[in-house]
Design a protein around this nucleic acid. Structure first.
Lengths: 338, 338
DNA sequence: AAAATGAACGTTAGCGTTAACGTTATTTGA
DNA sequence: TCAAATAACGTTAACGCTAACGTTCATTTT
């Protein structure tokens, strides 16, 4: 425990096994060039000596690493946790480690992290969304490192892209609301520019109501401590300001906050007000009244994204851009007919 | 864009600036040995050339890295996200990157990750809880790398430790329940051995009721898809099996699932049944009925842990073990008096 | 039987950076 | 005024690993 005999290196293993260091290297990496017998012997000795390879030396020699950089806006909420989970499992079993960043929705923070990450010569980089600093894009375009943009969708990604069309999602919600006869829509979100995807969904919703009904979509963007509180406060704000007949939320958690606000004010849902969430989160599974929401396949997205990126890393040709399907889940928090 | 001129190395910057590579190295690292004038000049040129230092080479030369390994059971739920958030912020501003792992509560998965991580010569390693494979402990004890165990608490950590006393938390809940006159307690958790901390809390609760009332604590451990559903299903199971007068849950999310189950069955809380959560999660902030729960300072724990580990990394003497305070928050889901 | 093949292993030369020590100019002190 | 101290650089030798190429020797081919 206190004996600080320097950790064994490949050379020590080689000496102890009476072979050259290259044989040890080959044995450990599992590549050709050593007989099965010797390989087993070497591995046994390496284990005995508690040999731990030095990834820094390896990466320096081969000019790349087994690290994958993953940048997310936040760990809060299930959304990115789900995506991350799907990705991590895939990468993990392929022998990659994840270097993770949270930007708190700041492209500047993202840039400074990308800079730091590039110094590790990672095998791949994953960014959330499409909203990056120009310099981030330049840096990544200039580097040979595969880049995946996840969660959002575009036909012109930095490199490759797996996600959903948030504008379309907004339209789906709008179409559904219009078809049920709603006329005074509102939206609860976080401060503008914070979550670009949510803004895109709102845009889709807006355009549908403008076209079909010629009406505006009111919006509230309170700065509360968490999603639930944001939903609650935003709902209160909208109810005080006007008389929406349907409120759509950035996600199910906010929608739940909204439901609580209605309950507190004695409003009944969906008779007095329609409520629409987004993402079909776990919470919804136990609510007594099924929430109208949009299902997003986040875990699948993570797995798909990771798989595509791995393919790209291994030089297998991949699609530039892969959109994932959306499904509107009609629930009991909106009217069932006009 | 397509011109694949190899990325600039320190040597190229040196040549372009007419100085030795050591001057560039010193300028970039911000250490003594270059005049202010030259340093500015060198930094300007480095920026122009889009020079990105090679961390692998650096780490090989200095035999350590700016990487911190963080192992968590899961990203699901707010708990570890909060801890992680506190830690990441602290590490980030100190120039460290986070290599993150999720074990899904498997000590074997933790071990294989620790092995991989050690090959990067990280500056520090963080593990969640105290429940590790013996080999994990051996490996880490043998290495000179500082190790932080977070979330749980012990006086004999691998290296240092910041967390809460979960057994004590269980006792607190037990004391509170007893003081309010409850007599038939139950507990909803995940399968045994899955979450050791939850098991410790249950043990604390059990011991209090055994001592004070001479009664058992029933438990339900369903394997549902998510915390909310687990709470719901576990509650249903307990209500079918017997007639508990108070149910304690692994966390607030499960408690909410339990509340929903009660609502569905027409049971009123707290008249017919007491409900106690854990962790004081965001959800609770919008519930119409304040949840009885235990506040855990997770973000603070992350910050404190990270700070302690950084101190340890920098050779500053630190306390072996730092317990964080717990506070029982009486709510409206338990009786207010006997 | 000689030549060609190929498996199994070894040698060498980096990969890009920094620690440690050397060198040169410049300032300081008595 | 001249040695001594100091600041500002430069040179060299690792750090631990792997790609690329060499060598050896048992097989196979002709």
């Amino acid at each position: 425990m206190s004996k600080k005999h320097h950790p064994a290196k490949i050379e020590d293993v080689a000496a102890r096994a009476n072979v050259s260091i290259m044989s040890v290297s080959r044995a450990i990496r599992g590549v050709d060039g050593v007989s099965e017998k010797k390989r087993r012997e070497i591995l046994r000795i390496a284990r005995e000596m508690k040999y731990v390879p030095n990834s820094n030396a390896r990466s320096l020699a081969v000019a790349n690493s087994n690290l994958i950089g993953i940048s997310l806006p936040t760990f809060a909420g299930e959304v990115f946790a789900d995506i991350l989970n799907g990705m991590r499992r895939t990468f993990d079993s392929a022998g990659y480690s994840s270097v993770i960043d949270t930007t708190e929705y700041s492209p500047e923070a993202e840039l400074s992290w990308v800079r730091r990450l590039l110094s590790w010569q990672p095998a791949g980089i994953i960014l959330t969304g499409l909203d990056h600093q120009p310099e981030t894009v330049d840096l990544l375009r200039a580097s040979p490192i595969p880049v995946l943009e996840i969660w959002d969708h575009t036909d012109t990604p930095i490199d490759i892209c797996v996600g959903i069309d948030h504008y379309r999602a907004g339209q789906m919600i709008g179409d559904h609301a219009v078809s049920l006869g709603y006329r005074r829509p509102a939206f609860v979100s976080t401060p503008r520019g914070h979550d670009t995807r949510a803004d895109n969904r709102l845009a889709g919703l807006r355009d549908v109501f403008a076209r079909e009904r010629g009406t505006e979509v009111l919006s509230a963007r309170p700065q509360s401590g968490n999603s639930f509180a944001t939903g609650f406060d935003g709902t209160a704000e909208l109810l005080d300001a006007g008389a929406p007949d349907i409120i759509c939320y950035l996600n199910d958690h906010m929608a739940f906050g909204g439901l609580m606000c209605c309950q507190m004010r004695g409003l009944s849902v969906p008779q007095d007000l329609g409520i629409v969430g987004f993402n079909q989160l776990d919470l919804a599974s136990v609510l007594p009244r099924k929430l109208t929401t949009v299902r997003t396949l986040r875990r699948l997205m993570g797995i798909t994204g990771a798989t595509q990126l791995l393919a790209r890393i291994n030089g297998v040709p991949t699609e530039k851009s892969k959109p994932l399907p959306l499904e509107l889940i009609p629930g009991e928090t909106t009217r069932t007919q006009i």
